[in-house]
Amino acid sequence: MLMLGVGDKEFVAEVPRPFKPEQVLFVGLNDMIEALNSKPLQDMNMDIATPDDIKEDSSKVLRWLDSRKPSKIIVHFDLDVLDLREFRSLLVANPATYEKMKEQVPTGSSMETIIRLLQDVAKAYDVVGLGITEHFPWDAYNLQNMLQRLPLLGDINKKDKAPYNWIF
C-alpha cells in the first residue's frame, strides 16, 4: 500500500512517485478483499481479479491491461494469494493452527494458475519488476530452533524458541 501513498508517513515519504489507484490491479486476493473496503482504500475504488476470475484463463487481467496500455509492468507477488493447502510457507500456515486455518481461509490460487497468469502477462507486456513477498518458511524456522538447542550445534540448555518478527 506504500506504493499508493498509504501507510506510515515515514515510509510513504520514501516513495517519490506513488502509483495512482487506476494503475493497480489486485489479482488473486482471497482473504484480503474486505480490507480493500476499509478506509482509506475504499475511496480508491481498486480493481480486483479474484482467484475464480483467473482460475481458467488470464483474460480478465489481460483485458484490464489492454484497457490501460501500460508501457511497463511491475508485479508485486504476495505469496499469500497461493492456496495454503498447496503452499504452506505462509504466516497463516503455522503448524500449530494449520488445520483450523485451512477451514477458515478461503481457497487461494494454485501455483500453476499464477505461473500461467504471469507467463501470459509477460508474453503480452514488458515486465520490468517482480517482487516476491509474504514468505514464511515454517519448516526452516522450526528446524533453526531445533538446531540451536542440539549438542555441538547450539546451546543444550536453551529452552526458548527464537522469536520471529511480523508486522501487521
Rank of each mutant, 00 (worst) to 15 (best):
F11G: 04
P95N: 10
N145V: 05
G5I: 04
L29K: 02
W166R: 12
M3C: 09
R116M: 05
K69H: 13
K55R: 14
P16Y: 05
R85S: 10
S38I: 00
Y141M: 07
S109T: 05
K60P: 02
D120N: 08
D52Q: 14
R68L: 10
N30G: 08
R63Y: 14
W64D: 01
H135A: 07
Y125W: 07
K102R: 14
P51G: 03
E86T: 00
Q119S: 12
N45D: 15
P51R: 02
N157L: 06
P151L: 03
N165K: 14
L152D: 13
P137R: 02
E34M: 11
G108S: 04
D120G: 04
V6I: 13
S58V: 03
E103H: 10
D47H: 10
P70D: 07
L152C: 08
E86V: 00
K9E: 15
E103A: 12
P106F: 07
G5H: 07
A162K: 14
M46K: 05
S67M: 12
I156F: 12
Q119T: 10
L117M: 06
G7T: 02
P51K: 04
L118D: 09
G154K: 03
D139M: 11
L91W: 12
G28W: 09
D120L: 01
L90P: 00
V92Q: 15
M46V: 05
P18W: 09
S89N: 14
K60C: 03
S109P: 00
K20F: 12
E34H: 11
D120R: 02
G7W: 05
F87H: 06
L82T: 00
L147K: 08
Y164R: 06
Y125Q: 02
V121F: 05
W138H: 01
Q148E: 15
Q119Y: 12
Q148K: 12
T50M: 08
Y164F: 15
W138T: 00
Y98W: 05
